[in-house]
Design a protein around this nucleic acid. Structure first.
Lengths: 160, 160
DNA sequence: GGATTCTTACTCGGATATCGCATGTCCGAGTCGCCGTGG
DNA sequence: CCACGGCGACTCGGACATGCGATATCCGAGTAAGAATCC
């Protein structure tokens, strides 16, 4: 079970968009982070479909966050990329084989499914506690130089 | 991100082995649960390598739990199947692109990595709280009939 | 000078190849139980 | 009757195909900015 690598890119993009004051094209974000442009575009589209950012087309277009960074959680981004489905899918093994229990006796879901789902909820709860704004401020504190300001300047500067 | 389907089988097998009083062959467990025998064998080998159960060869061989059900957590089983590596792998995006921060300024790991790792720990902590013994007792309470006793009888009964 | 139209270049969006890992399967090595044999 | 040796069948273990989803890419539809034109 490995998380899609697109999640990391998407989160970095969200933080970077915090420093921008206008639409930023996907290609620009890809260059900033040193990742494949066309592939990043795919994930940005997913974020757009999820309503976290909206796209503006045309010459000076790009992506813009729809909500304030405080209102976007890491979980929002993860679910936009990975889909909202749980990490565990119960195949109802208890209803198979020679000792299958009848569906009538399955008033509650399988214990194993309950356990895995509870863990899944704990994971999601932890991700819900952190917002993009939290990430942004932490990035500023982690490094001596003001990384966010540099990113903002770079995004505003014209292409060579 | 989807959890391997083998985890579900492996957990059911651990609970079933609780009801047995001797080695149970992989083929028997597969028939009991209605899953592919050869594929289940693969996962049982993983559990064996992890030290959760040990195999005895020969005519009346099979798998036996090495520890008491109270001492085996669901996390043990999940990590045996999925591997102990975290669900998130940081590719150090911050050190790439035109605004890459130098490795010297990376005294702490990336905020995003920290966040995802914390969520991963929460997930694992939830799984560590539940033991195979907990699963067994819950199975007994979920259904009217004593499922575990039926499984034990079936495992003891000779093949047709 | 100002409004309008046209061009143009830039943007996103979905449809399309490629790769890696999980899934699913197979056959060989090893081992224990059982049966026959001999004392 | 008991001990021993050989046989046989059953077990696990690692090596081998296959399918599907994540990865990576491309080209077309749409649009806003800007230049050129006309009033």
């Amino acid at each position: 079970m490995r998380l899609s690598g697109g999640v990391e890119s998407a989160l970095h993009c969200c933080v970077a968009l915090t420093a921008a004051d206008g639409p930023v094209p996907a290609a620009r974000l890809a260059e900033l982070h040193g990742v494949s442009a066309t592939y990043l575009a795919k994930h940005l589209q997913a974020l757009s479909r999820a309503g976290l950012m909206h796209s503006v087309q045309g010459k000076a277009g790009g992506y813009v966050l729809t909500r304030s960074p405080e209102e976007i959680t890491v979980l929002d981004v993860v679910e936009a990329i990975e889909g909202p489905r749980s990490t565990f899918v119960c195949t109802e093994i208890r209803q198979r084989g020679p000792l299958a229990v009848s569906p009538d006796d399955c008033t509650v879901s399988c214990v194993i499914a309950r356990t895995m789902t509870a863990a899944d909820r704990a994971w999601r709860a932890a991700l819900r506690e952190v917002s993009i704004a939290d990430l942004r401020s932490a990035v500023g504190e982690d490094h001596g130089v003001d990384v966010l300001a540099r990113i903002g300047d770079w995004l505003r500067s014209p292409l060579p």
